[in-house]
Write a protein that binds this DNA or RNA. Structure first.
Lengths: 207, 207
DNA sequence: TAGATTGTTAATCGATTAACAATC
DNA sequence: TAGATTGTTAATCGATTAACAATC
């Protein structure tokens, strides 16, 4: 790894995209790839790809390109996907159901390991092979199962209090589908994924 | 509106966030808001909020702040949310179900107006008050219903061909949930919302 | 060797933030 | 008037891209 530069969020967001393409190349048994080829396929400037990767180490060979297997291995390590990462999902509504069933697709060493809901009628039900748990078991379960990340799929009014619960339980990364801004301590990363804001910003570009 | 500056994507992504907070203020009957108050609540620098808004017009009053109702009206216009915007959803799987049922929540003049799926067993079924249609009706329906945006919730291998169908049908904005990069003509905006990449980049920040 | 491609520096471009005159 | 807050300019910061020596 090395190269103690500060890595920008933009770089970190591109790494999974690179990884996805490289995994595809593995599948079709391509063993070497150039930044130019990657850039063409991912719509990213080749210089940017080289710079992004070079921030973590000298992964390529001049005149040749990158060894696909080696690069996959390196990016997995950078993203800490070498050990399984367990994820909690809070909110077993429509979206929560969809995402937890989607679980199988996450693979790549990510797994939803616990599901929580505040509704007593849902607690105890099975979902994607897990039993839906009440919120007051959240902290204990997250500690016991060594869960590191969380997905919030509760309605907007509940999102902040769920976020508070999660951060108190030691969660350091949250993917928030609720259509609301949430606040957390600076060392907790929050990514937003709500459909409404996304669509509204797309609307700006119409005609 | 006016101020023929070029508006950056970053600004456009913040406008829906502002709108959401302002709508909340309307609900609780607050009539005036300062950039400082907005910034505190949304975790955005107040100078940035003022600059973002000033790019579209002089919406505030010095010494006073912004009139909430007026600002809501203005941002709605900027985002073209004054007329109903119709959205097509392609892929009636788990996620497609969740999002189309979520439909009611979209409100704010956005509505899923057609649902498509390639699976003949799903075609003809009802979903969120709509009949699932086959892909070969896509172009005609999009034209007839004046659909402007689309959501892709098909498996990754099908995403590019669906994207091609959509752009040929005149769609100018796509929200892509499929875990794959898709290519489209330059005048088509694509936003990515796949869960896996989002989680993977969160993983980077762990310890 | 000739051609290709990296890693890196320098140049460019763009976005964020601070500061403050204008003014309500 | 005094206090508050905008709109805007200038300063800063950061990210992207071009260019090229190094080298496989």
């Amino acid at each position: 790894m090395a190269k103690h530069e500060k890595i920008s969020e933009a770089v970190v967001r591109r790494l999974p995209i690179y990884l996805r393409y490289l995994s595809y190349l593995q599948q079709v048994e391509v063993t070497t790839v150039s930044s130019q080829q990657m850039g063409r396929n991912l719509d990213v400037n080749p210089a940017q790809i080289r710079k992004d990767l070079a921030a973590f180490g000298d992964f390529g060979k001049k005149g040749i390109g990158y060894d696909v297997n080696y690069l996959v291995e390196q990016i997995r390590q950078i993203l800490k996907l070498t050990d399984e990462i367990r994820v909690a999902l809070v909110g077993a509504g429509n979206l929560g159901h969809a995402i937890s069933n989607y679980n199988a697709y996450l693979k790549d060493n990510m797994r939803i390991a616990a599901i929580f809901d505040s509704n007593p009628n849902k607690v105890g039900n099975e979902l994607a092979g897990l039993t839906i748990q009440p919120l007051d078991e959240l902290a204990e379960t997250i500690a016991a199962k060594q869960i590191k990340l969380a997905i919030i799929t509760v309605p907007a009014p509940a999102a902040q209090s769920v976020c508070d619960l999660l951060t108190q339980a030691g969660i350091k990364g949250i993917l928030n589908f609720a259509p609301t801004t949430i606040r957390a301590p600076k060392d907790v990363r929050i990514h937003y994924a709500d459909v409404t804001s996304n669509l509204q910003s797309l609307a700006y570009y119409l005609t």
